[in-house]
Amino acid sequence: MDHKAGDKLYVDFAGQKLSITDKDTGEIITVEVFVAILGASRLTYVEAVSSQQKEDFITACENTLHYIGGVPDAIVPDNLKAAVTKSSRFEPTLNETFSDFADHYGTTILPARAFRPRDKALVEGAVKIMYTRIYAPLRKVVYHSLKDLNEAIRVVLEEHNNRFLQGRNYSRRQQFDEIEREVLNPLPVLRYELKKQFHATVMKNGYVCLGPDKHYYSVPYRFIGRKIKLLYSSSSVEAFYHYERIAMHKRTRGLYLYTTEKDHLASTHQFVADWSKDKFLGWASSIHEDVRLYIHNIFDRKQHPEQAYKSCLGILGFSRKVGNERLIMACRRGLHYGVYNYKTIHMILEKKMDQYEESLFADELPMPSHDNIRGEDYYK
Rank of each mutant, 00 (worst) to 15 (best):
S51I: 05
I68E: 00
R173W: 10
D2V: 07
D56Q: 09
V237H: 11
P305R: 08
Y10R: 03
D177R: 14
I373E: 07
N341L: 03
D274T: 12
K204N: 09
Q197R: 12
F361V: 04
L9S: 03
Y143M: 04
D22T: 05
S311F: 09
P117F: 07
I153G: 12
E358S: 10
D274Y: 06
F318G: 01
L146E: 06
K140H: 15
F90V: 05
L122E: 15
I287Y: 11
P368C: 02
A48F: 04
Q197E: 14
K54E: 13
C209S: 12
D100F: 02
R326C: 06
D2H: 10
D377C: 11
H249S: 13
D213N: 14
S319C: 06
R89W: 10
A200L: 04
L149K: 12
L327S: 06
Q307K: 15
P117A: 03
E91D: 13
M347S: 13
K343C: 02
H160A: 05
N297F: 09
F13H: 11
E350I: 02
L157V: 09
S99N: 10
G334R: 13
D100N: 07
R168H: 14
T259E: 08
P366W: 10
I68Y: 02
H104N: 00
W275N: 07
E158N: 14
H346R: 11
A362I: 02
S233W: 06
K195R: 15
H288D: 15
K54Y: 05
K147Y: 07
T201E: 12
I373D: 10
L65P: 00
V208T: 04
A83M: 09
T93R: 15
H370Y: 13
K321F: 05
A239R: 08
V127W: 12
S267M: 09
H296L: 04
L313H: 14
T259H: 10
Y232K: 08
E62D: 07
R163D: 13
I129G: 05
D363E: 12
H336W: 05
P220A: 14
R222W: 08
H215F: 05
D73H: 00
Y232S: 03
I153P: 01
S171C: 06
F176Q: 01
E193Y: 03
H304T: 08
V272M: 07
A247P: 02
E55R: 08
V141L: 06
E158K: 15
A82I: 03
K229L: 07
V71E: 00
F57L: 09
R139H: 14
K140V: 07
S369D: 08
D119S: 11
G39V: 01
T107R: 00
Y294M: 04
S88G: 15
F176I: 01
Y294N: 06
T93V: 12
T64H: 08
